[in-house]
């Protein structure tokens, strides 16, 4: 890709590509749908959400992508990630190469021990879920709060409402708290 054509391309799009990755069962697909609804419905932007299907979705590294733009989204798949959330070591290793050089890397440091760069945000999503909320299954929701805080791509209010609109009855308080924990912990890192 060294030709003249490629040298002269100017991109003016505000396209932003996020990948939520982990292992099957960590709720990456659920989180990506909630994020897509928050950005697309509440913030009024165009979004395309897609996820891995087939054998790779069952165990092993699983991923779900959200592409965001205020313009029409032509190519629906991620090309070069602006943000990667890695919830497991395997996902970290598999998808790090897809992240832009100046892209945002968010890592669950309770499960990921080796990060190939020192430019990343590390939060113990799984440990926070266990100790702050009492359920490790909300680690994905805590991560959504962190994404809102670290990117500003969606407001705390929009992401909270989107989570609550999909939360099973009776789990609203835990989910609301999970978003807040993620948001507040990430804000501390930002300082």
């Amino acid at each position: 890709m060294t030709g003249k054509l490629f040298d002269n391309i100017k991109t003016s799009s505000d396209r932003f590509e996020l990948r939520l990755s982990g292992s099957g069962g960590q709720g990456m697909i659920f989180a990506s749908v909630v994020l897509g609804e928050a950005i697309g419905l509440a913030e009024g932007k165009n979004v395309v959400q897609s996820q891995s299907y087939g054998p790779e979705a069952r165990g092993g590294a699983s991923k779900a992508d959200v592409v965001v733009s205020s313009q029409e989204i032509f190519y629906p798949k991620a090309m070069k990630l602006d943000l990667l959330l890695a919830m497991t070591q395997e996902a970290m290793d598999k998808y790090y190469a897809d992240l832009k050089e100046d892209g945002i890397l968010i890592v669950d440091t309770s499960l990921v021990t080796s990060v190939p760069t020192d430019k990343y945000y590390g939060l113990e999503f799984t440990r926070l879920a266990r100790h702050e909320i009492g359920q490790i299954m909300v680690a994905n929701v805590i991560a959504l709060g962190a994404i809102a805080a670290l990117t500003g791509i969606v407001s705390l209010e929009s992401i909270t409402n989107a989570v609550l609109s999909r939360a099973p009855r009776g789990t609203e308080d835990k989910n609301k708290k999970a978003v807040e924990v993620g948001y507040n912990e990430a804000m501390k890192l930002k300082k």
């Binding site: 749908v33 697309g40 165009n46 979004v47 395309v48 959400q49 897609s50 299907y53 629906p76």
Partner: peptide, 10 residues
């Protein structure tokens, strides 16, 4: 096709 069938958009 599978890409459009399984992508979510608003």
């Amino acid at each position: 096709d599978e890409v459009i069938a399984h992508s979510r958009e608003i």
